[in-house]
Design a protein around this nucleic acid. Structure first.
Lengths: 141, 141
DNA sequence: ATGATATAGTTAGCCTACTAAATATATATA
DNA sequence: TATATATATTTAGTAGGCTAACTATATCAT
């Protein structure tokens, strides 16, 4: 029955993203980070001094979310903020040494997660899976 | 390159679950529901008078989350709570008429979402996809 | 029957995430 | 130059999600 298959796919998707978030959160907590903060930092590891609007785009979330995340990361000493000299409306976000040091351990968590998720799935299958995922992604645009 | 494929899969997964949640939230708001509340209600549509612990298991979340969700749903008049006569520790959750009425529109939202997600993916492909998803699901257990 | 332990739920406080509304600064226009 | 509009961020209040600590009730064992 087609309906059943569709439901299964939808359900698995939910379970996978939920469970990944959980595992992931647990690992990040050991680094004193929360889910999502790693993604914000990853933008800064590419290059410092980014505005909050740029972080919004990168995280695909709304400005108040960035305000809160930045506040939390600043309080924990991973980043600091500086008002732009040219345009006093914008805040520029910079990494502290403590923030820079997180790059490697976070990348190792990402790698671990990918390996766990795709364990026992063969290279040919991964290609098929990627294709299907990309198509679903486009379906939602 | 294998690494790239793995990253793509992981990234697509994130984007899909993020985007689905968004779309989904938008549709549910028209029914005056928030993401996740539909899932709680779906347990009640199977049968009323469930305890909060049972809802925890169904939603796979912690007790405080259920406390809050139940409070919100109660305030909006979709459910009501009654203390168990036999065991005064447990609260039993019941649907109001307003809560019962939501079943059909919510199921229609679910169906729409599945169709959007799987649009253009052929029946054979769906079977393969389901298999791969189930395997990933098991990998995370 | 009393004391220890287990179970159900709540509260407080943190996080991401949202919308709506406010603030401050910059720029465009009359 | 004064006014209007656009942009960047913050605040307030909502939600789901978490942990840790607390309350109340039940049950089990001594």
């Amino acid at each position: 029955m087609n309906h059943k298959v569709d439901c299964d796919i939808r359900q698995s998707l939910d379970k996978i993203s939920f469970q990944m978030r959980r595992d992931y959160n647990e690992s990040l907590r050991e680094l004193n980070l929360y889910v999502g903060q790693d993604n914000l930092l990853s933008r800064l590891w590419l290059g410092d001094g980014v505005t909050q609007m740029q972080l919004c785009e990168h995280l695909k979330c709304e400005p108040p979310t960035v305000t809160n995340m930045v506040k939390s990361l600043e309080q924990n000493g991973f980043i600091y903020r500086q008002r732009d000299k040219q345009d006093a409306r914008v805040m520029r976000i910079y990494l502290t040494d403590k923030g820079k040091e997180l790059e490697k351990p976070v990348e190792s968590i990402w790698k671990q997660q990918r390996e766990k998720l795709l364990h026992s799935i063969l290279p040919e299958e991964r290609l098929i899976l990627r294709d299907l995922m990309k198509r679903m992604e486009r379906n939602l645009e």
